[in-house]
Design a protein around this nucleic acid. Structure first.
Length: 150
DNA sequence: GCCAACGTTGGC
DNA sequence: GCCAACGTTGGC
């Protein structure tokens, strides 16, 4: 089992929204590096749910992969914000996964707090200029962040 | 709204 | 293959 971190704008999907729904499709990833990480995910993998582009950016909880990567239907939907005119049913370069809620933290672990942690220096999230929205988390980083949540 | 930094596009 | 221009991300 592997660990990950994924960013979502709470206006689109928040940890509270996922808790309410129980599960959701994680779609709209339009970056090849992030997509490749999606494809490496296995059912049962857990990830930190990060809230981005919002008043309180940070890790808001934990969720789990319920179904591994499959072609992202939003790429084929002209109505979707994530529509990709170059994608087709035969050749859809984008992937989605299904996720389920695990835990909402009592308080959001703010980006500032995460940046203070020596144990997280290698995490793409806290590196200058990094915009990666899906990234791997090592077991050590996972433990360090879980400790902050207690 | 600003802006730094990155990724993508497309002409050459 | 280079690289300038453009679009996007995302914190502040």
């Amino acid at each position: 089992m592997a660990y990950w971190l994924m960013k979502s704008e709470p206006d689109e999907l928040s940890i509270e929204g996922l808790a309410r729904l129980g599960q959701a499709r994680w779609d709209g990833v339009r970056n090849y590096q992030a997509r490749n990480f999606l494809r490496n995910m296995s059912v049962g993998d857990e990830f930190f749910f990060y809230h981005s582009s919002c008043p309180q950016p940070g890790i808001a909880g934990i969720a789990r992969i319920k179904a591994g990567a499959y072609p992202d239907p939003t790429a084929l939907d002209p109505q979707s914000h994530y529509f990709d005119a170059k994608a087709s049913a035969e050749k859809n370069p984008w992937s989605a996964v299904d996720v389920e809620h695990v835990r909402t933290f009592g308080q959001v672990l703010g980006l500032g707090l995460l940046k203070q942690q020596t144990a997280l220096e290698a995490l793409a999230l806290v590196q200058k200029g990094s915009r990666l929205s899906v990234m791997p988390v090592t077991p050590e980083q996972w433990q360090a962040i879980c400790a902050l949540a207690r």
